[in-house]
Simulated scan of single mutants.
Amino acid sequence: MGVAVITGTSSGIGLATAATLARSGHLVFAGMRNLDRGDELRAIVSREELPVKLIRLDVDSDASVNEAFRQISTEVGEVDILVNNAGVPGTGPVELAPMEVFRQSMETNFFGAVRCIKAVVPSMRQRRTGCIVNVTSVAGQFGMAALGPYTSTKWALEGLSESLAQELRPFDVRVAMIEPGVVATPMTTKPKPSIPVDHPYYSSIRRLLAYFDASLEDPTSPLEVAETILRVVDSRTGKLRNPSGRDGAKMLLWRTTKTDEAWVDLAVASDADWSADVKRATGVVAKLPLS
């Protein structure tokens, strides 16, 4: 069992992972930007007497990351496991999404992970042991209309992870990516915006929302993703990419069975053809008024 640091643990996948790793015997430092949002995790920890310690960790801040890892080092020594989970959504067509959405998404989803990685790698490399798990997404391997800001961050994190894995392989430090599909978290279940029919990207946004709504009718729990992370951590697998959730692997297969051009051309397929393609590839019945 080891010392694990998990980012973004106030809800969703991060909260589930903190509890799951602790139940398996790991000592977990549960990082979150605002400790006032930790009541749900505190209740689980208290009820089950889990080895979890909440710590303020704002991955957007160099100072916060440095201070958090300094505190951990002082208290227990070296970190054995890092799970980079903290993330924010970033949606909207590239033309219309504000630059601030791109900047904030990249700051948290990509640079936040880099900050934490740089905090643990020197010790892991010197000790020739350790595991770094980056929670990316199926969006780290393919783009979809109206998800440009978010997808960009996940592609960047996947590229970083692959490079890092090769760099650290000679030192027996493992790097793995977790690639969930649609997971029932506060990020995905909050009320969806109303899109006016005269919006220039109405069709693309409507299809994206329809897929999410349909997938969430039989939702993947954050606990399923947490179990994937636990298996990666405890099995000592060298597998780099690890799809997770009910539609993670199916969505990746959907993309890889199409040429680039065929994937792009889905944007001009009829609603009937698009819905049929989604169902055939993923099993998800995305309901749309058919054109």
Rank of each mutant, 00 (worst) to 15 (best):
V5Q: 04
I6T: 01
A156M: 11
V114M: 08
T153M: 08
P98Q: 15
V182M: 07
K279R: 13
R125A: 03
S61P: 06
A30M: 04
D60F: 04
E179Y: 10
E40T: 05
A145S: 14
V79T: 10
D277S: 15
K53L: 07
T237M: 00
R127N: 14
D273V: 10
P170N: 14
V284G: 11
I6E: 00
F142M: 12
L21M: 05
I55W: 06
L147H: 11
E100R: 13
L147N: 15
W254F: 14
Q104K: 14
G143R: 10
L216E: 12
S64Y: 12
L96Y: 09
D172Y: 14
N84Y: 07
T257C: 05
V233Q: 03
F69Y: 13
D62Q: 07
E107C: 06
A276F: 06
G130E: 00
E217R: 15
V94H: 07
M187D: 08
G283S: 11
A176D: 02
K239P: 01
Y211V: 05
L157A: 13
I72K: 01
D234C: 07
D62M: 04
L15K: 07
T17W: 11
E158D: 04
R37L: 07
T74I: 09
M1S: 10
S244I: 00
R246V: 01
V197D: 13
V173N: 01
H26F: 00
R241T: 00
G90I: 01
R169A: 13
G8Y: 09
E261D: 15
R231S: 12
G87V: 00
T153R: 09
A226T: 02
R206S: 14
A68P: 09
T282A: 10
G148V: 04
G112T: 03
V3M: 02
V45E: 03
P98S: 12
G181Q: 06
E48N: 10
V101G: 08
A214E: 14
L240C: 02
I72L: 06
S137H: 02
R103L: 08
N66S: 15
G159L: 11
P149G: 15
Q104M: 08
R174M: 01
A16L: 04
A146W: 12
A113E: 02
E158Q: 08
V94D: 07
E167K: 13
A63N: 11
K154N: 01
P191A: 07
T189I: 10
L96P: 03
D265G: 05
R174L: 01
S24D: 11
S291D: 15
L57I: 11
R115N: 11
K53F: 08
G31D: 02
T136M: 03
D172P: 05
A43Y: 08
V138S: 02
T129G: 04
T282V: 06
M124K: 03
L168A: 09
V59Y: 08
T9V: 05
Y202M: 06
S270Y: 06
K53G: 03
A249G: 01
V182E: 14
R127A: 11
A214T: 09
V3F: 02
E100N: 13
S203Y: 09
V28A: 02
T153L: 06
D80K: 00
A30T: 01
A286S: 14
S137Q: 02
V79I: 08
I81V: 02
K287T: 14
P243Y: 07
R33K: 08
E158T: 12
T257Q: 12
Y201D: 13
R174I: 01
V114F: 07
M144H: 09
D36P: 03
L252Q: 10
K239V: 00
N109M: 06
